[in-house]
């Protein structure tokens, strides 16, 4: 995802001389091609995210499109007030790009796990939020935000993620990764691959399960979401994020006022307050969070049994 992002950004910067990239002293082995090609529009600000976000706002308010890049919580939570006041309140054309979504930095520990970022970013005024599930969606998202003229948040995992579906036609709309009507799993981010695994397993047990990638969390295309689940007797949301403020909150909120609403089962990362996290690969940590494909299958079957 990182490589796809920087390739897409470099392409956009070739076409638009107003695109800048700032990083907070992170991006080793990723950002160098951009820095080499556009040295006067690339800046390593240093380990100083508040300054980076403010500088980005100042450059953007001078008529530029500014990407800022760092790991998970650093360009988001560390400088949250700068994003709120300096970027979003002014409608400054700043794109926050965070690498290391969810458990992507597995064994690096809790400080490097981005578990609340998408929800917190979504609460900022006027920002658009994208959580792509695969490199194809990363490419589409980078192209889209490079020309949107709006504050944006792009949540990337790390590297080596496979493409999960066919070409992206409209990133703002849910993208069907697997057709199926009885149960529809709405997934955001690369964890969608586990939804596909679970759907395959459930199909073997006679269930008709669809998987849909929801990469644009804000603005949420509510009509398209409703359409994607129109025949479902169970909606499942799956995200590498806590349930509060993420995809589950959005979808549950969307259907809360419906008299004939289908039940919504939310699968995500448990909140970790007061508990220390273990070392482990992303895969191991997701398994430990009860998000293995087998656990997803079991939890969907439980929900189906409760209907």
């Amino acid at each position: 995802m990182r490589t796809t992002f920087i390739e897409s950004l470099s392409q956009a910067a070739s076409e638009n001389p107003d695109i800048w990239l700032l990083c907070g002293d992170l991006g080793y082995s990723v950002l160098e091609p951009f820095a080499a090609k556009f040295p006067d529009r690339y800046l390593n600000v240093g380990v100083a995210e508040q300054n980076m976000a403010g500088i980005a706002a100042g450059i953007a308010l001078s008529g530029k499109t500014v990407f800022i890049y760092s790991i998970g919580n650093f360009p988001t939570l560390r400088c949250l007030e700068q994003l709120r006041n300096d970027v979003c309140y002014h409608g400054a054309d700043v794109k926050v790009v965070a690498v290391g979504a969810g458990y992507a930095y597995g064994s690096q520990g809790y400080t490097h796990h981005a578990l609340e970022d998408a929800g917190i970013m979504s609460m900022l005024p006027g920002i658009e939020v994208f959580v792509p599930c695969d490199p194809m969606e990363v490419r589409a998202a980078t192209r889209l935000i490079a020309t949107s003229g709006k504050p944006s948040y792009l949540r990337l995992s790390r590297q080596g993620e496979p493409n999960l579906g066919t070409a992206v036609t409209d990133l703002r709309k849910p993208r069907v990764l697997r057709e199926g009507r009885e149960v529809v799993i709405l997934a955001s981010g690369p964890i969608a691959s586990r939804a596909l695994e679970a759907a395959g397993e459930l199909a073997g047990r006679g269930r008709d399960v669809g998987v849909v990638s929801v990469s644009c969390l804000k603005p949420l295309d509510e009509a398209a979401i409703r359409d994607a689940v129109r025949d479902a007797s169970l909606i499942v949301t799956l995200e590498e994020h806590i349930l509060r403020g993420g995809l589950f909150s959005l979808v549950a909120g969307l259907f809360a006022g419906d008299a004939r609403r289908p039940p919504v089962t939310g699968l995500g990362i448990p909140e970790q307050g007061g508990k220390t996290s273990s070392a482990g690969s992303r895969e191991a940590l997701l398994d430990a969070a009860d998000l293995s494909a087998q656990a997803i299958v079991a939890r969907i079957e439980q929900s189906l049994a409760k209907r």
Partner: peptide, 24 residues
């Protein structure tokens, strides 16, 4: 030029403007 009120925001923004002005 910019809304402020929470302290410590103005200088980074001004730096961004100075960078952009120099570039221009």
């Amino acid at each position: 030029e910019v809304s402020t009120g929470s302290l410590g925001h103005g200088l980074p923004i001004a730096i961004g403007m100075a960078l952009a002005a120099r570039h221009a």
